[in-house]
């Protein structure tokens, strides 16, 4: 089983607020693998917007992304794009 892990920093000033959370969930749901986010000991399902929102990740916080499954590589690459774009914000 393929398991990949990478840490991302939230770079936009508003943090992981509602709109970016929707972007992430949309991206995550395109893949079959299991995708979990971890922040400060809290672990959530990245395919659930409710879960992503409970992270309340502000600017500068670190989110560990864990993808597990066949298409883990592609999923991580897609999520990296979303994180690194700062969700299209500054």
């Amino acid at each position: 089983m393929h398991r990949l892990e990478k840490t991302f920093t939230i770079v936009n000033s508003l943090g992981l607020h509602a709109r970016p959370a929707a972007m992430i969930v949309r991206a995550a749901n395109k893949f079959r693998c299991d995708i979990q986010f971890e922040k400060d000991g809290l672990q959530i399902n990245a395919k659930s917007i409710m879960g992503v929102l409970t992270l309340a990740a502000g600017k500068g916080s670190l989110v560990v992304v864990v993808c597990e499954g066949e298409d883990a590589e592609a999923a991580l690459a897609a999520l990296a794009k979303v994180f690194e774009s700062g969700f299209g914000e500054r």
Partner: peptide, 8 residues
């Protein structure tokens, strides 16, 4: 819209 289909 995303919440409507949320697994939780």
């Amino acid at each position: 819209r995303a919440m409507l289909r949320d697994p939780s």
